[in-house]
Amino acid sequence: MPLFTDNADVSVRPAVRGDEHAIARIQVEAWQLSHVEVLGQGALDLLDASAIEAQWASAVSSPPGAGYRVLVACDGPTVVGVVSVAPVPAAEDRPFDAPGGAILALEVEPAHQRVGHGSRLLAAAVDTLREDGADQVHTWVLDGDDARAQFLASAGLGPDDVVRELVSGRMPDGSVRTVTEHRWSASI
């Protein structure tokens, strides 16, 4: 008689060559769900899934340096989420500060959100950064991405008053459309 449990076969592992198609699909689907209000459908329609897939393939197979990593969340054998991290060296004007790390991307396939994959990815990213000697982590949150802000706040990150503006495209009248991101950080 088989034994059934409430535990799903879920995991986080380093991304491997071949994961890039799933990762790109997850990123595009997640962005279309969470960023349409801020970026606009026109900007999202311009996403080039093939180019995104090629960038992820490069990040997985040829990271730009030590400490750059891509991890994936799996539900059984299926890739359902991604996180990528990068080192942030101590500032030159504060050479005694320990280095930190940045979460460059953290996305979960919309159909698999709110079941723990994001939390597992974030925990694995923090563990990886700690192993590399980081004592802090930061990431960027697009204005209007309330779900991401709530998720990060529940994990102990918070806005640290650093803001940046990014160009997201041109409007029909020729003006430039910008979006604002706030940096969120925490000691780890």
Rank of each mutant, 00 (worst) to 15 (best):
34 S>E: 10
116 G>C: 08
31 W>M: 09
40 G>V: 15
90 A>L: 10
43 A>N: 07
89 P>S: 11
32 Q>T: 09
91 A>I: 13
108 V>L: 08
125 A>G: 06
118 G>Q: 07
68 Y>M: 04
74 C>R: 07
70 V>I: 11
79 V>C: 14
57 A>D: 05
113 Q>K: 01
102 A>L: 11
87 P>Y: 13
118 G>Y: 10
107 E>F: 15
83 V>A: 00
87 P>C: 07
53 E>V: 03
43 A>D: 00
83 V>G: 02
59 A>V: 04
52 I>T: 11
105 A>Q: 10
121 L>F: 04
84 S>C: 14
88 V>S: 11
59 A>K: 13
104 L>E: 14
102 A>Y: 13
43 A>Y: 09
104 L>Q: 13
125 A>Q: 05
66 A>E: 10
99 P>C: 04
76 G>K: 15
52 I>G: 06
59 A>M: 13
78 T>L: 12
61 S>T: 14
118 G>I: 03
65 G>W: 05
61 S>L: 04
68 Y>V: 09
33 L>M: 10
41 Q>N: 01
40 G>E: 07
74 C>L: 00
83 V>R: 10
89 P>N: 09
108 V>W: 07
69 R>K: 10
123 A>Q: 09
52 I>P: 02
82 V>G: 04
91 A>R: 14
78 T>V: 15
37 E>I: 07
95 P>G: 02
67 G>C: 05
77 P>W: 01
47 L>Y: 11
58 S>E: 11
35 H>F: 04
77 P>K: 05
67 G>R: 09
68 Y>C: 10
85 V>P: 08
120 R>T: 14
100 G>A: 09
122 L>V: 03
54 A>D: 06
47 L>A: 04
73 A>I: 05
97 D>I: 04
100 G>F: 13
107 E>W: 15
33 L>Q: 13
83 V>Q: 04
73 A>T: 11
122 L>C: 04
46 L>S: 12
78 T>P: 01
124 A>P: 01
114 R>T: 01
58 S>C: 01
76 G>V: 03
46 L>P: 00
58 S>I: 03
80 V>G: 11
55 Q>V: 06
44 L>Q: 10
119 S>H: 08
79 V>D: 02
42 G>W: 01
75 D>E: 15
92 E>I: 14
117 H>Q: 02
84 S>K: 14
104 L>M: 03
125 A>Y: 11
52 I>E: 02
125 A>I: 09
49 A>E: 14
86 A>W: 15
33 L>Y: 07
122 L>K: 00
98 A>G: 10
121 L>E: 02
112 H>Q: 08
124 A>C: 00
74 C>P: 03
59 A>H: 06
62 S>N: 11
50 S>T: 13
74 C>F: 06
102 A>R: 15
61 S>V: 04
46 L>E: 12
31 W>A: 00
56 W>K: 01
40 G>N: 03
122 L>H: 04
66 A>H: 05
86 A>G: 13
35 H>T: 00
103 I>G: 10
94 R>A: 12
92 E>L: 15
53 E>G: 06
39 L>E: 09
91 A>T: 15
116 G>E: 02
103 I>S: 12
111 A>R: 09
68 Y>S: 05
72 V>A: 01
55 Q>R: 15
68 Y>F: 12
61 S>M: 04
111 A>T: 12
65 G>H: 07
106 L>N: 12
109 E>N: 05
64 P>G: 01
110 P>S: 08
